[in-house]
Design a protein around this nucleic acid. Structure first.
Lengths: 242, 242
DNA sequence: CGGGTTCTTGACACGGCTCAAGCGTAGTGG
DNA sequence: CCACTACGCTTGAGCCGTGTCAAGAACCCG
């Protein structure tokens, strides 16, 4: 884990952050954002492949993603890896450790990223004083639970084709919320990670993608996906069409 | 949803509750438990099959389970049901609605149950004033997230046999934490619900249970399960043995 | 006792897993 | 600049676990 902030770190503030509308500041007033800004610890970059924290690390802080994509995963007893989610700018990382005080997941940067550290003790103290912040925090925690529930739905009920379609639809909406084009985006994760997350094999992801390609729904470039027919993919994701 | 508390409801307090060690009061001091006790709204029973709340209902309160078992489920667009979890005494229900303000799941009583209503606005106000309660609340929210993660793991990586073994192990630990025998317990849910939760078919659950029976690991009576060889089942659940 | 629900069991089909080989691209070092 | 390697992706063949469909048994409740 990197120990130092970048030289420009002190110039970055929540008030100017590109993703403040998606992050804890959300609808907070200027004064409240300032107070939040003051408890933020280090704001630092992570290079692709670097670990934000590893599984088993003691919990001290939450991390807000300012830029980039992350992968969260667990290591099972048998040594196998389970990807529990992909995380984007504006999201909070580390919520799963609040209960036990230990990070149950490891989190790794899928590209060059930037995060803000939120020492949990300070955040808790601030939550006590600021009802609006408390509401936002509970909102984000609730969103994390809702997100997990939708993953359960995906893994419990869908076939491979529908799972992949669902992932594409979600990726599109994630990029849309961040102001990017929804019809062409970069999938930073490998098929390996993708398949792990979707609960199928690498080969299966590859085959399903090939099918989508043949049906003219997507165009695939290395590490990039162009969505040609989002409505059709949405139909597949909804399960109303095969 | 029932509208009236039982005649004896006013006599019930958190301080005397059988599951206070598992619920929000946990390690709180007497004074703090009293304050929590005062914001608890209705404490009421639910008959088997009654809905605590339905999907889409506006969120106003969390519910603490005082006694009994619940099933939480979603209805997909195509009308199918997805069981998202089973809930026991001491657990908080409704956390998934904090983000959106609307319950995304419905919750139904699998047997005669009793719950305590926690108006969320009141709880929030109390959280601001009581650091210890805040900590407990965050702990329980974190546990919910961790619980969901383990479901994701189950659905994403395990075969049917391992899933069922995992469910039995968890049920045993749930009953143990509540002071019941770990080797003989009642499964209030139908195979239908069980299979739905585990992401397999009814028939598959039945077949796997039959196998366990043949191997001398369990004995099955209607709606009841006797665990004969918990260590063996734990081994299966861990994935180290088939 | 009777009617509906729940559970069991069998036969068969199919989706996805496994194993294996081949391909393309990026990065490395001579 | 071009092997050479490493890694990720694609594609195929065969098999196994589950889903599906169907029938019957057991159970529960009125």
């Amino acid at each position: 884990m990197p120990q130092d902030a970048t030289p420009t770190a002190s110039a970055i503030h929540c008030a100017d952050c590109a993703v403040r509308r998606l992050c804890l500041p959300m609808e907070l007033g200027t004064a409240d954002v300032d107070k939040l800004d003051r408890i933020v610890g280090r704001r630092f970059p992570l290079a692709q492949g670097e670990l934000l924290y590893r599984s088993g690390a003691p919990f001290a802080s939450l991390y807000a993603v300012r830029a980039g994509q992350f992968k969260a995963y667990r290591i099972n007893r048998d040594g196998s890896e389970q990807v529990t989610g992909f995380h984007f700018s504006g999201q909070l990382l580390g919520l799963d450790a609040i209960a036990s005080g230990v990070h149950s997941c490891a989190v790794v940067a899928l590209e060059d990223c930037a995060v803000c550290e939120l020492p949990f003790a300070d955040l808790e103290a601030l939550l006590a004083k600021m009802p609006a912040l408390r509401q936002q925090f509970h909102r984000m925690v609730g969103e994390e639970i809702a997100r997990m529930q939708s993953v359960v739905l995906l893994l419990g009920k869908m076939k491979a084709r529908q799972r992949l379609a669902t992932l594409i639809v979600r990726a599109a909406s994630v990029y849309e919320a961040r102001g990017y084009a929804i019809d062409k985006f970069q999938l930073r994760m490998t098929h390996e990670d993708l398949s792990n997350y979707l609960g199928v094999t690498r080969e299966c992801v590859s085959r399903q993608l090939t099918k989508f390609k043949q049906e003219g729904l997507v165009r695939v470039a290395p590490r990039e996906l162009e969505v040609l027919d989002l409505p059709a993919i949405k139909t597949i994701a909804a399960g109303t069409a095969p």
